[in-house]
Amino acid sequence: MDFGRFIQYIASGTAYTLGVTLIALPSGLLIGLVLAFVAVYGGKVPGKIMDFYSTILRGIPPIVLLFILYFVMSGAINLSPFWAGSISLGIISSAYQLEIFRGAILSVSGEQMMAARAVGMSKMQAIRYVVLPQMIRLAIPSWSNEAAIVIKDSSLVYAIGVPEILRRAQLISASTQQPFLAYITAALIYFALVFITNRVLGRVERKLTIPANP
């Protein structure tokens, strides 16, 4: 097989990789963000439930949850490999993002909340206008890391047959007996995706930085 076609075959899996990531990461964000606020401000019982959620999901290897959602639960929910993969990764990511946001919220000192209440804001208003904007800036570095992780974890869906980058590298490697080339290509593509993501988020972080005198 000529080199160009080789690379192209593997690279064509990028669409699937991006697809899985672009479903998993934002859904993890939405769920994780909401749950983080519930965990911090919701009271004792909701807090305990969030702990349970977070502990369980961070205690299972993503690929195991993947198999459960795809194979085990197929009687009740019949998902395609792509959706089973994306949703599993989204759920797992939401647990990690819950912890990222929880930590960031707690880093915005409780006194900011107090100052906001002193001006007459309700708890919800204080969260929305004072805690949330500050919390986001604190969360970006860790979140950037999580984004990279989800991109890389997307490769796990090879195991249920999504024709993304890794699976294609495997197939090409098998039929041409050129594993080195195949996997290096795959590695380079993943690296590029992660690199670009980190760069973009770094820029976002800089843009959002609050001016201060050294």
């Binding site: 900011q112 107090m114 100052a115 906001a116 001006v119 007459g120 309700s122 004072v130 500050q134 609050i210």
Partner: peptide
């Protein structure tokens, strides 16, 4: 309480300005 606090102003030892 939120209503009440609209009519009572507070100034804190650590200023507690909204940093953002």
């Amino acid at each position: 309480e939120d209503r009440v606090r609209q009519h009572i102003g507070m100034v804190f030892q650590n200023f507690l300005l909204f940093n953002h």
